[in-house]
Design a protein around this nucleic acid. Sequence first.
RNA 1: CGGGGCGUAGCGCAGCCUGGUAGCGCGCCUGCCUUGGGCGCAGGAGGUCGGAGGUUCGAAUCCUCUCGCCCCGACCA
Length: 475
Amino acid sequence: MATDKLPTREANFSEWYIELVRRAKLADYSDVKGCMVIRPNGYAIWENIQKVLDAKFKDTGHKNAYFPLLIPESFLRKEAEHVEGFSPQLAVVTHAGGGKLEEPYVIRPTSETIINSTFAKWIQSYRDLPLLINQWANVMRWEMRTRLFLRTTEFLWQEGHTCHETEEEAEKETLQMLEVYRDFAENTMAMPVMVGQKTDSERFAGAVRTYSIEAMMQDKKALQAGTSHNLGQNFAKAFNTEFQGRDGKQHHVWQTSWGVSTRLIGALIMTHSDDAGLIVPPKLAATHAVIVIIGKGEERAQVKEKAVAMASDLKKAGLQVIVDDDESKGPGFKFYEYELQGVCLRIELGPKDLQKSQCVMVRRDNRQKEFVNLADTVSKATSLLDAMQKDLFEKAKAFRDAHTFEVNSYEEMKAKADAGFLLAHWNGDAKVEKRIKDELGLTTRNRAVTVKQAPGKCVMTGEPSVGRIVFAKAY
RNA sequence: CGGGGCGUAGCGCAGCCUGGUAGCGCGCCUGCCUUGGGCGCAGGAGGUCGGAGGUUCGAAUCCUCUCGCCCCGACCA
């Protein structure tokens, strides 16, 4: 059989990505333009993302709810900047029930408006605050160019929406959820991120301030992995979301919203995977270990018995395990297949192993092979997975740091345009920002809190700058 | 919306120029064989050739129209 290898990252990163997504059975194109089918392998990762994040949301006092998919078109118009930002991306329902609707509905691109129309009814007094709501939902944004997981017309996400009594509380909430995302990205996804505030031109339509976490993919491009917005009173004013305050007077609530999407799966892939296929950090993996049975006839039956017992032990330790007893495929084929699909740990078990009371364990990320005494399988498996989780983060962080540079002139910036994250001084002028984008393809990512802020001179104009901001080519 | 490409078996493609029984590889099914890095042998199933018109004795092939998708650019999580 022909060895059917993936394109390499080096040769063609985007081909590599698309092929990997399809061959690892994460997602498929659908019959609907721009929309994808998330397959069980991909959806399992999303379910794990949901599980971890949902627990964090609950821990921080949020409750889940669900709002309608359809939003009256007039709602969008109530917040001027919001409608302007989203109108090119809206899908609109004009007919239903066999006739034309009096007022069209838009399919939600996000839910600030429909949620505010409800919040306005729920909130009367400061005693109703804070109101901390999250929803897991699908949204639709019409896109001109789509890419599996990274940008599709319909996607899955969570959107948090909160209301507060004071501006300070809203800001605190915005930053708290940003920190939840940072922690999740780094400790669960093993993906280091730059955390900071977006510039005005990159701000969410309708927000006062937008913060993001930005990750570096293996092609050195930036990917916005999560956003948290301080909405101020913009939507509250548009929808009269008011409460009677401690002073007895009516006030508009102070709001936030924050979200991450199935895009995170794309981020995960482009952060960790290699030319052999998918690599998933153990904390999010659908399958932690596969036990591949080797041997034939009588010997095989004995091996299988042992493999089933081993799987049972591993499952008791909380691992997702599959036992592969398919005799129609050779072991070699299976090794390639499970590497492609991102199973964290391969355990080979054959007659020779049984004689020596051992098995072979191979970590997916570094493909190191070791012989493990059968008595130690559970402890060894868990320690290898722990090490893998940690190593993936360290490796990604080392890569990111090795491709992050301070640049001090426009020439230098131009020379390093494809080199990764560029930390540069900028005078804060949107026109300069746009010029850099047009000329070099570099956009501001955020003003990262980990980048020491000291005054300097704008790389383009030489004018004063309050501190360096992250520039990069971005997805 | 501009530029390019492609629609033929589940997937990848050839056949089209020069009209005449619809093919190849992979996958799939059955049986045998094999099993420590993509095994082998034999047999088998599977296609309104994207769609609609037209030319012709005859169209996957020529002509007209149409639909869809992918890639590259302008917008975006």
